[in-house]
Structures are given as structure tokens and as C-alpha cells.
Design a protein around this nucleic acid. Structure first.
Lengths: 152, 152
DNA sequence: TAAGATGGTCAACGTGGTTGTCCAAAACGT
DNA sequence: ACGTTTTGGACAACCACGTTGACCATCTTA
């Protein structure tokens, strides 16, 4: 039936990667050369309200230690900050700094721009349908962040 | 315009990951539990004719040393074998073993089956259009295999 | 034939993942 | 109220896979 069973997964990945690379190339141009693809998902998982290392690990599908290391790195880069929870002395709240929020906002904007470029090539309605179809076939799958270990 | 700029890349990745995980779950069931997502792409890059470590690295977008390490692993698992090139004593040809070819063939078949499941959900014509649209927007991009290092 | 390019391997290093261990603080149960 | 369990965080050791640098053998080329 199909000409090549590898076409679909390959193109999905290439599309994903082009979008991610496009965002990070632009972020690097705007003064954020150290932000990795991984970090974007972390920023999103932290969100405006902040989280803890354990909760972050849960959301991303990695161990709390791995989440802690990533937080260490982002803290060193100035994108997140830790604060003690006044209601629970065990917890350390992880929140985005202004710099971190800036990256989160810019990322969304750049993704929108890249999406618009796609829309210009295949048409806005076709792109909407592509997104809708992907949602249909993939369902409500949680995002797993253990990509490095998962792939290799 | 778009509700969420993160939707598109996220769904592309989730779709990719579901296909890959589906194939490797089935491969594991069929006696190949040690084959990683990475390896499928390596098998494809080696192809029927075989290659060398340098050429493999070039195709996959990684260093020749990294390609060599991956070959070491696959050789240990019995999926590829090295042979000296009779016309060039420097080169070592890497070829798939019967076991390796089996995985390559089965992978393509399972991908086709998963693709058929997608087609059953959104319709064969819509899936064909989705693929065609992805090809249009992504262009003739070479696959890069440096995923672990790239992502994190 | 000497100089350069090419293919392969070894070694050292970095990052991000894992598990195991331990401690402090909160929650729970009698 | 107090002892026990659970929870959040950090430290350490280890593994996988990527990188660069160096080195040697072999082929190509001027």
C-alpha cells in the first residue's frame, strides 16, 4: 500500500526538529544562546506559578534527581530561581525569572511565526487540519522528557 | 491567530514518538528487545549494500567516532558485521547480518500497520495529504542522528 | 617517491539519564 | 502528644551517547 513505511515517522521528526531548531536559532540571535531544546519544555512545565523538583520530574517523566540537575543548570544560567516555601520548609519552589519568562513568551511568538510560514506554504486550512488530525491520532498523550535516554 | 504555538511541535513529536514506541514494542515482543529507536535509523542508513563508519557518520550527522561506537554496539548484539574491503585495506565495510535485515524488514511492516491504524482514524486520503504537506513544509532535509546531544 | 588526504581506533571529557542513600520536615495514627 | 510513615531535596556513583584531539596505517596525488 504505502510506498515507504519510514516516511511518516521521519517527516514528523524532521518537522518537529525544524521548528525547534528555528526557535532556538532565533533565541540565540536574541541573546539566549545557551537555551537548549530541552529547556523550552522545562519552562513550559514550570509555567507562571512555579513548581517543585519532584512535581517537575513527574510532569516531564524523569526522576526528581534529573529534574533537579536541569534546574541547577537553568539556575546557573539565570532563567529560574529557587525559593523556600513558607508553608512547607521541605519544598523549594522553582520559579521563572524575568529572563525565563521572556524566553517562554518569545518562544511562543516564534513558534507562531514559523507556523505562519508553514501556513503560507500549504494553506491555513490545511495546516489546521493537519494539527487536528495529529491530535486525533495521538490522543491525550502526556509529554515525556526522557528523550536523550529514550532514543539512544 | 493560533491558540497555542506549542501545539504543532508537540503533536509532531508525540506522533513521532508513538510510532517509534509502537514499532519497538512489537520488535521487543518478536525477540529484539535490545533494539533502540536510534538503531532503526542506523539500519536504514546502512542499507542493503553496507557502508563504512565515516560514511555512516556523514549520513546520520554525527562524528565518525560516534558512528563507530554505535556500530560496536550493534555488532555485539549481532545485527551488523564488519568486513575488510578487499580493494582498500583502510576501509571496514559494515553490513547488516540476517538478523539485522530481519529487523529492518519487520520495522517497515510494523510502521505500515501503524500507519494503517492512523488511516482508519482520519481516513486514507487525509493521511496521504498530511504526509504530502509535511514533505512540502520540511523540504529535502537530511536526517540528523545527534538527538541525545542535540536535545539536552 | 615524498606529501597530503582518508579511514579507523583509542583516550579524555561533558551532559543528562539512572539508582541508591540519607536527612529534614510534614502528615498520619493510636 | 508522640512515634511512625511519607515526602521533598541533595549527594554520590554509575551508565549511555555525544564531542574533540591525537595517532597510525593506507591510499592518492603532485
Amino acid at each position: 500500500m504505502s510506498t515507504d513505511g519510514f516516511l511518516l515517522p521521519l517527516r514528523l521528526f524532521v518537522g518537529f526538529r525544524q521548528l525547534i531548531d528555528g526557535v532556538h536559532a532565533e533565541l540565540a540571535r536574541e541573546g539566549h544562546p545557551d537555551v537548549r531544546p530541552l529547556h523550552g519544555f522545562v519552562f513550559q512545565a514550570i509555567g507562571r506559578d512555579g513548581t517543585t523538583a519532584v512535581e517537575l520530574g513527574r510532569r516531564l517523566g524523569v526522576s526528581k534527581q534529573a529534574a533537579g540537575k536541569t534546574i541547577d543548570n537553568l539556575e546557573r544560567l539565570g532563567y529560574v530561581e529557587r525559593a523556600t516555601d513558607p508553608y512547607d520548609a521541605r519544598r523549594k519552589l522553582v520559579r521563572l525569572t524575568d529572563r525565563g519568562r521572556e524566553v517562554l513568551i518569545r518562544s511562543a511568538q516564534i513558534f507562531d511565526e514559523l507556523r505562519a510560514e508553514w501556513a503560507a506554504q500549504i494553506g491555513a486550512d490545511r495546516l489546521r487540519q493537519l494539527e487536528a488530525d495529529l491530535v486525533t491520532v495521538t490522543g491525550a498523550e502526556a509529554f515525556r522528557l526522557d528523550v536523550p535516554g529514550w532514543f539512544g
